[in-house]
Design a protein around this nucleic acid. Sequence first.
DNA 1: TCATTTTGTAGACTATAGTCCGTGGTACAA
DNA 2: TTGTACCACGGACTATAGTCTACAAAATGA
Lengths: 68, 68
Amino acid sequence: MDIKVAYGKKVRQIRKDKGVSQEKLAELAELDRTYISGIENGKRNVSIETIFKIAEALNIPVIEFFEF
Amino acid sequence: MDIKVAYGKKVRQIRKDKGVSQEKLAELAELDRTYISGIENGKRNVSIETIFKIAEALNIPVIEFFEF
DNA sequence: TCATTTTGTAGACTATAGTCCGTGGTACAA
DNA sequence: TTGTACCACGGACTATAGTCTACAAAATGA
């Protein structure tokens, strides 16, 4: 189990559940759209601050991103 | 509440509970000793892979590091 | 179809994560 | 005093996080 892949899948799943595009999430989290794409595809080793930005942007507790 | 500070405090608390030195944790997590120090003092923006390495080294589920 | 939205990815770039060297400080035991 | 274990921190360094631009490919709906 690759943690980057698992985290990326979670982000995508929660984002889609909320009906938000990558572009909108990027705007809310103040990140680049292409970076969100990289994260969701398990290619990025995100920092703890980025993890929090994304959790806040999606209005979901950080813990939920680590329930695999 | 600074996420880096909160995370660092958690790492220190759990590490001390386990009676492990920074040096030993660094060795177990395959990280640099001075970097562990920086993390515990809330000065480092650790990556998701590093978060997992530390959790595994301390044998604690990642989720526990995010229960503030 | 066709237009529009959404996404993947590449390349070049800047900022910073993480390493490795060292020094010094504190605490405790011999 | 001396040794030893632990920790904070600085500087210099390499690897990579994260940005930005651009283009192409799906996907979606009319």
